[in-house]
Design a protein around this nucleic acid. Structure first.
Length: 461
RNA sequence: UCCUCAGUAGCUCAGUUGGUUAGAGCAUCUGGCUGUUAACCAGAGGGUCCAAGGUUCGAGUCCUUGCUGAGGAGCCA
């Protein structure tokens, strides 16, 4: 195995002959000595490579510029400099690839995140995106580890779906028909019988319905995959293509659901602090001075659990002037959620028992005939990080709701059969992966926590 | 999609009530410097002032439209 800069800095073996590969961040020095800061992405830290210019051709060293990629052989030595403990005294350098200083867009100095979005193909080479991408990896791993350790099975739900009743937003259509000349029916509409799947299909907006099928067989499952929403959303919290984690558990009621959500989020934040300390400290210093405090505070807080009705009472009695007035029956607006989380409770809040008219058909109806067992988990700074519910397991109540909302019951026959055959109480929720990363990294825009963001008018790279 | 703000050098930005040849820092190039730390010192090159119209003797600056970006809102994870 090749040795990485991360490993060398972690276990420096002074006097050892090593070979490292990486991209040049900066070069400085004079006629006698040159210093190269080299980074291979294995850690936020660079290793300092020292060149005694008497041993190297000036022309070769001239081509080692910011952005170029090199291989260095040399002796690991303790460094007399203040900024690092070890450095590499080079005796051989090979240039894999030069980077023309006139056209290479990344400089030694900081760039705006907006500019880096325009060069998303190169931004992984920056400290910021190196840190974000390493944290993103660690969080992916932690999610699988958490569920595996808790007896959940990873379920792969379809990405292409013919179900347009998932109710989570506008969908991207998937087709192989000729856009200029599609087959038509007599009434002039497109004949999707001739399409690839023989019917109209789209990219999934949620794996939940299929997740429920598996939970009612394996008891505890989760999905973790790409999700697509064709909403024209232009905000720092929305993407057209994002990754979602959706656990679904048989025999869990809404309280079990909340227990899991709180334990799961706490585990992930703790995992990041335990395993991504250096990257988090960098992001804290550069972008968000309160990041560490907020993460610490969150894992040490018990989440507040309130009902929608309680939330409405708190908001109406707060004396606060809201742009959107609060009354029982209307959905909570962002300003209301922020008030609850950031000003009233000052910690994460879980809201349940929403009016049934503002929530999806599959949520379990309460006995009061007015509310359903939906669940939103609200976080400081980013708002809704989780949406979920206990599901309606009663066949007749579910059918009744589908009829009331005029949903196409015939397209849901497979979903309804789980309620006809051995139905069971069950619950689940969806966690937006990039929303989690926003919270954990302290980044302000969701387009900066995914390598290649997709949003309205942009599918570059 | 709506509201607000912005767009000037490769990057980050300044540019006065509309007035001569549009500036700075960094980056780049050249030279200097015996261990630097986003090195430092000196010099040089570098501009479709987002685009198209308009007002004016005169527009980077004012007006209209469009494009792009950011923040807020809606939708939601």
């Amino acid at each position: 195995m090749k040795i990485t800069i991360s490993e060398i800095l972690k276990h420096p073996d002074i006097g050892k002959d090593v070979e490292i590969n990486g991209w040049v961040r900066t070069k400085r020095g004079n006629r006698n000595i040159t210093f190269i800061a080299l980074n291979d992405g294995s850690t936020i830290h660079n290793i300092q490579v020292v060149l005694d210019m008497a041993e190297f051709e000036e022309e070769m060293v001239r081509n080692v510029t910011t952005g170029s990629c090199i291989k260095v052989n040399g002796i690991l030595s303790s460094s007399p400099g203040k900024e690092q403990q070890v450095e590499l005294h080079a005796n051989k350098i090979h240039i894999y690839g030069t980077a023309d200083p006139d056209s290479y867009p990344l400089q030694k100095k900081g760039h705006s995140l907006e500019f880096l979005r325009e060069i998303a193909h190169l931004r992984p080479r920056t400290n910021t995106f190196g840190a974000v991408l390493r944290i993103r990896h660690a969080m992916s791993y932690a999610i699988h580890k958490y569920f595996n350790d808790h007896g959940f099975y990873y379920l792969h739900t379809p990405i292409i779906t013919a179900s347009d009743c998932e109710g989570a937003g506008e969908m991207f259509r998937v087709t192989t028909l000729d856009p200029k000349n599609p087959p038509l029916l007599e009434d002039g509409s497109v004949n999707f019988n001739e399409d690839f799947f023989g019917r109209e299909t789209s990219l999934t907006v949620s794996g939940q319905l299929e997740g429920e099928l598996a939970a009612l067989a394996l008891s505890n499952i989760y999905t973790f995959g790409p999700t697509f929403r064709a909403e024209n959303s232009n905000t720092p919290r929305h993407l057209a293509e994002f990754w979602m984690i959706e656990p679904e558990m048989a025999f869990y009621d809404i309280h079990d659901n909340m227990d899991l959500a709180e334990d799961f989020l706490g585990y992930l934040i703790r995992y990041a602090m335990d395993h991504c300390g250096e990257d988090l400290r960098f992001l804290c210093n550069m972008y968000d001075k309160e990041l560490m405090d907020r993460l610490n505070f969150t894992i040490n807080s018990k989440y507040e659990r309130i009902t929608y009705s309680q939330a409405v009472d708190i908001l109406t009695q707060s004396g606060e002037k809201f742009e959107y007035p609060v009354s029982w029956g209307v959905d909570l607006q962002t300003e209301h959620e922020r008030f609850l989380v950031e000003r009233h409770y000052k910690k994460p809040v879980m809201v349940t028992n929403y009016p049934r008219d503002i929530k999806a058909f599959y949520m379990k109806q309460n006995d009061d005939g007015k509310t359903v067992r939906g669940l939103d988990v609200l976080f400081p700074k980013i708002g809704e990080i989780i949406g979920g519910s206990q599901r309606e397991e009663d066949y007749h109540k579910l059918c009744q709701r589908i009829t009331e909302l005029s949903l196409p019951e015939k397209d849901l026959w497979w979903y309804l059969e789980t309620r006809r055959f051995g139905t069971a109480p069950h619950s689940g929720f969806g966690l937006g992966f990039e929303r989690l990363l926003l919270f954990i990294t302290g980044m302000g825009n969701i387009r900066d926590v995914i390598p290649f963001p997709r949003f309205p008018k942009n599918a570059n790279f």
